[in-house]
């Protein structure tokens, strides 16, 4: 498996660390209430198909990446910098 880091180019998966769904970037307001926080902390979909995942280029450039990946075909559709994804959302 290879991930095309926006900084470093295509790299072997052993340089990266996986950290679950990219939902983790959408931190709720402290006052959003228990249901919203419960969803944010604990509930994740497990789709057969495209997912958005957080990967850390740990032995590379130290960028956090949002990788859009298909769990069925293993195709990687997009690799974005978490900082850019977050910046665009704000």
């Amino acid at each position: 498996m290879r991930i095309n880091c926006p900084h470093c180019g295509p790299r072997d998966r052993r340089e990266f660390t996986y950290q679950g769904d990219a939902l983790a970037l959408d931190r709720p307001d402290p006052e959003a209430g228990p249901d919203v926080w419960n969803d944010y902390i604990h509930n994740r979909d497990n789709p057969a198909g495209p997912t958005r995942e957080l990967w850390y280029h740990e032995t590379g450039c130290a960028a956090w990446l949002v990788v859009t990946r298909d769990t069925v075909t293993h195709d990687i559709h997009a690799v974005e910098l978490a900082s850019a994804v977050k910046g665009a959302g704000k």
Binding site: R11, D12, R14, E15, H57, E58, T59, G60, C61, A62
Partner: peptide, 8 residues
């Protein structure tokens, strides 16, 4: 920045 024998 890459992996060199298990080391960053």
């Amino acid at each position: 920045r890459t992996e060199i024998a298990h080391m960053g």
